[in-house]
Design a binder for these strands. Structure first.
Lengths: 202, 202, 202, 202
DNA sequence: TCCTAAACGAGACGGTACGTCCTGTCTTAGT
DNA sequence: ACTAAGACAGGACGTACCGTCTCGTTTAGGA
């Protein structure tokens, strides 16, 4: 979220990212103003406007920095278990401070192009990771051959975002278990009808 | 979205709803201000604040009024066909002016309680209709017995909202076909393994 | 400096004029900002911008209000004495707080049309008063018949403003006495050359 | 308006003076910023701040450079004619681009010490020239013996600046003729009452 | 039919934040 | 060593809306 012509003050950048994060945690992204970020960071407004085109851009950078500390997609060899782990991680993350910011960015993305692009970019990375894991699982015979993996990602994460963003229900861990259980027939290869080994067992 | 003590001017109410709708169509909900609505409606700001607590409340009323003109959930007896019809309707609606407003309301709902409640209220109705249709289909043996129907709704609409709100892909009709195809094993009863016809006649 | 549609808050107007005056006294017109005026007056910036087009306009109103408390041009019957009195008053006024503001307005008038018009308007009144007094003196035979009275005003006040604005010398009372003394031959009717009564004595 | 430690880039100095002059001509001194001067001169702001303490200082240097191209005070032997010539030159100059800059510097001088000192310095030279010419005229019997020549300068230039800076009237050549005509009795020696020719031959 | 209380239009008000502009200082590279 | 370039903290600008608050002026019902 910025070009970096070496002349730039890294100290100011850090202060801005931290101030923005702190303010969003305290009052939410929508109630966080650029003036307040500048004030808390001990920085001039101009310094912010010089490097970021909007409030959303700052927070996108915050999210990216923090997200890059993640490990990759879980891989125990058992795709259903890994999906359960990962979706549980996601739902847990959504309840944290970072989740609140992410929610605000998604809201902003409905209006601002900058936010929309940023959100898409971040999601693209996450989706690609998930698709890669699913591809590996498919090679291991754990996922139906005929399933478009991008669609699979929508099936898995669609219900999470639907629930989370629209507040149609509480987003408890049992909920995600139910979703994955329900999706199992769509994800896994069909049973070979009595004879032959069960789908997962080696 | 208002008490209605008979003294209220119906003319003003209509003018406000129309002005609000028109402005949102032209510039989006976020860029629509109460001052602009008042100006276009030829109404005092006070009149708006008297009857609606926020911009979102006005638009929620607009959406409800327009939505009430809908027919109910399609019911041809074939649940998969009806789901295809209905999801196609929804995705088509999302591309219209009303869809843009709905998108703005969902964004507002991430921040404002009023918007959140309104969105939930409207969605509740839609979900209940869908659940009712699914229940009927289950009774007709078209839906797995062990499927929680509220979860089923999430499986079906989650991908739509995920795609639409997060912009992860274009939201074409073939996309929804793929989603429903992929979901088929999870929605329909399992084949009876050899005996009896397969679920989709062929 | 403002239309007055009765809805206007007289309290705010007074507070603004007083705050503006006070701040100009303390830091000078140039260093007085509209934000500071608003803050000191306990008023929103918008309220100032609603009624005055610029800082200069506010101070022009201050000057006019205060100036209207003046008595008219002195008139003892002796024009030279009255000119001495009046120019002494003016030079004294120039050293006061109001004088400092007037100086600032004249500076502003070199740039802004609003200030220029206001300054001209105020000066027009003062000049007209002086011309009227001179006309009366001319009728009394104390001023040369062939002297254009508007020019006379320039002769009298030109040196005052020249000295004051350009800082070419200290502007002491003796200075103005010298100026008036030097101007005497230009203002008064020529002596009737030995025979006849002296110019002023009845 | 600068120390000159030999290391200084004469090219930069010229570029700055020209840029400053050009910008003042185009938009006026008040609207000319140091940033704009630096940009047009192709020079860093630092370079300007190193050598001049303020915008006014730059323009004072511009004015002094251009003014030094003047010839001295006119001297035909006839003081009234020379005054007419010189005041006409001045009023003509005031309408030029340099006049506009001079006007801006006088405005600045009401606020800034640097500008005030510069304006005084420049005026001091002009006044001294005029006083010298008047002294010569007095020796030639063309100016009253008892007239303080510094006061005489105020009488002559006061009306010009009064008119020019305060905009009380158009500053046409006939205006200056009227002023000098009106001042004649104050400047010239009194007629010797009967014997000898009247001051203006006729 | 009149009276009265509400709802209404109009818009001033105190505020907050916006994004821009310029100030004068400072830091970093490049001659 | 001086320069060009430009980042930086600071602060005022004038604008746009916010939501609240009088103002008279309709206007609709109950007396």
């Amino acid at each position: 979220m910025s070009t970096a012509p070496s002349r730039r003050s890294e100290k100011a950048r850090q202060a801005i990212l931290e101030a923005a994060f702190g303010l969003c945690v305290e009052r939410g992204l929508a109630a966080t103003t650029i003036e307040a970020i500048a004030a808390r960071a001990g920085v001039a407004k101009t310094t912010i406007y010089r490097w970021w085109p909007s409030k959303a851009a700052i927070l996108l950078e915050v999210v990216e920095v923090r997200r890059s500390a993640d490990g990759g997609y879980p891989d125990t060899g058992d795709i259903m278990a890994d999906l359960a782990t990962q979706t549980a991680n996601v739902t847990r993350l959504f309840e944290t401070e970072l989740g609140a910011i992410w929610r605000g960015l998604i809201a902003a993305a409905q209006t601002e192009d900058i936010a929309a692009e940023g959100v898409r970019r971040i999601l693209r990375g996450a989706i690609d990771e998930c698709v890669a894991r699913l591809a590996k699982a498919r090679d291991a015979g754990q996922i139906r051959e005929d399933l478009d993996l991008e669609i699979a990602v929508e099936l898995i994460y669609g219900p999470i975002y639907h629930t989370w963003l629209l507040g149609t229900r509480a987003m408890s861990p049992p909920f995600m278990d139910s979703v994955l259980d329900a999706l199992r027939p769509s994800l896994q290869p069909p049973p070979s009808c009595g004879v032959g080994p069960p789908p997962v067992a080696g």
